[in-house]
Design a protein around this nucleic acid. Structure first.
Lengths: 148, 148
DNA sequence: TGTAGTTAGCTGCACAGACAACTAACTACG
DNA sequence: CGTAGTTAGTTGTCTGTGCAGCTAACTACA
């Protein structure tokens, strides 16, 4: 309970983290918006793009996206309704579904990917050198480490 | 259009950023949840706490919170309905309202603040030394710089 | 093999927030 | 002073997501 005030440098590092994330996230969303995809939607297409023709299980997609399975069902519904992905009942597990990109989905992914990377460059990578990137990666590792 | 693949270190720095933010954000929300406040609600209380008895304008709060004024009206409604803040018509500008903490709000802020800082310590500050913090602050600065 | 427990995904409901349209109040300029 | 334009805040509507509860399918163990 004896939590004492943050020191200025702590405050700056923390507030900056939140602010930078917010700013960059919004910018990237705004870049994708003209293509009609949100970050959430884009990232599903990207995951399926990486997965190739065998696709991915719904639950794995939900987990990678860090969202609830309920929420992900709706997200997949939207993508399927727009003809960007397809769901097939899994052969090995009758409860599950396998999602794959349609060719339309693949086409949109290409455009979105290119936009996304362009924005990422100007917002993030152009402003950081390799030393920064290594340091960041190392810091993320420490922040995610299990114990304290 | 010649956007080439991300290098591994870029990928790691970027993905780690998103992941770390998500993880920490959720943990802090979870810490506040038993007190019945979300991060959004807490941060309004915190802003009003800093502002002192003179309070803050609705629009300034919305801006600091990086949310739409429409959305902020609802957020303020919730806090007011729970007796945590009060709105008074501004004396100097008849269109505006000034929000201030009630004593109930101040009491809740104290508890939430302490919880928030405890979590922030174990999730963030305990894992980073001053050199990390300085480096982060510097990086956030570069990421928010206007031009490229 | 049958039964108990678990898992995958879907659905109903609730809620936070965005956006656009609106009203009331302010400002500037002829 | 009056009129045109701007600003502060609210409201209606919509969308995305979480959670709890559900069904169907799987697994393990007696």
């Amino acid at each position: 309970m004896a939590t004492e005030r943050l020191r200025p440098i702590e405050d700056e590092a923390w507030r900056g983290f939140l602010l930078a994330h917010d700013r960059i996230w919004r910018s990237i969303e705004a870049g994708l918006a003209p293509l009609g995809v949100s970050m959430a939607e884009y990232s599903v297409l990207a995951l399926l793009g990486e997965a190739g023709p065998k696709g991915m299980r719904m639950s794995d997609l939900a987990e990678r996206r860090l969202m609830s399975t309920g929420g992900f069902t709706r997200l997949a519904d939207r993508l399927e309704r727009r003809g960007l992905i397809e769901r097939q009942r899994s052969v090995v597990d009758g409860r599950g579904f396998n999602a794959t990109l349609t060719s339309q989905g693949r086409a949109l992914l290409r455009k979105a990917w290119s936009q996304h990377h362009r924005d990422l460059r100007t917002l993030f990578f152009d402003r950081l050198d390799d030393d920064d990137l290594r340091r960041l990666a190392e810091i993320w590792g420490r922040l995610s480490a299990h114990g304290q």
